[in-house]
């Protein structure tokens, strides 16, 4: 564990807390893509199949449980909570996310570290996480306006990815055999998807104005 990895995990956790706070405090999920949230739930369940077979640390196990539970809770709220579900921007959230699931799984069958069920699901989760933000970015682009909490949620998610890249650079320089092509290449792709959002986020921050994305 290095400082970048810890900062990445903490901003990831923070992003989920901000999202839960938004949903809980405003009883609304407007501006949030349910499809992206469903993809994250699939990502965590698929990736943490090793929860019962490999023990790494208490920290590791705790975080895995938090990520699985929070992502399922968010999807549950958006689908079934009587007030929250009413605020869902159904007509804006039309990205065909099942294609992402299919393509990621196909890629995992071709590119994986080992040909085992767990490893294929692990690779699948890495590929799917890389593109899972797309429905969310498309929804924001369509609605144009981004409320503060939604903007911060995506900012922290992007920060989490940026810190993971620093973590890999650090590990590459300090660990003799650190070569993780699948995770690193997917991670760079994932972070690149946030570049546009970050650009407009910083502009609005600099001008102290409301975050707006161009149509």
């Amino acid at each position: 564990m290095n400082i970048f990895r810890l900062a990445g995990d903490m901003t990831h956790l923070l992003s989920i807390l901000v999202l839960l706070l938004k949903i809980y405090a405003t009883k609304s999920c407007s501006g949030i893509s349910r499809k992206t949230q469903e993809l994250y739930a699939i990502v965590f369940v698929a990736r943490y199949l090793d929860l019962f077979t490999d023990f790494i640390s208490v920290y590791n196990t705790f975080m895995k449980v938090v990520f699985i539970a929070s992502s399922l809770a968010i999807v549950w709220c958006m689908r079934f909570h009587p007030m929250v579900r009413r605020s869902y921007d159904r007509e804006l959230d039309t990205f065909r996310h099942y294609f992402l699931v299919g393509a990621s799984f196909a890629l995992a069958l071709i590119l994986h570290e080992k040909f085992t069920v767990q490893e294929i699901f692990w690779a699948f989760s890495i590929y799917l996480e890389a593109v899972a933000i797309l429905p969310q970015l498309v929804l924001l682009q369509r609605s144009g306006n981004v409320d503060n909490l939604t903007g911060q949620y995506i900012f922290f998610l992007g920060a989490y990815r940026a810190f993971y890249i620093l973590n890999w650079i650090y590990r590459y320089l300090t660990e003799p055999h650190f070569t993780r092509w699948i995770a690193c290449v997917s991670g760079v792709v994932q972070t690149a998807l946030y570049a546009d959002f970050f650009y407009y986020y910083f502009i609005s921050w600099k001008n102290n104005s409301k975050l707006k994305l161009p149509a």
């Binding site: 590791n60 975080m63 895995k64 660990e175 055999h177 650190f178 995770a183």
Partner: peptide
């Protein structure tokens, strides 16, 4: 090159 065993990242 040798690979670190298991996936230690989240």
């Amino acid at each position: 090159t040798e690979q670190t065993e298991g996936h230690d990242e989240l």
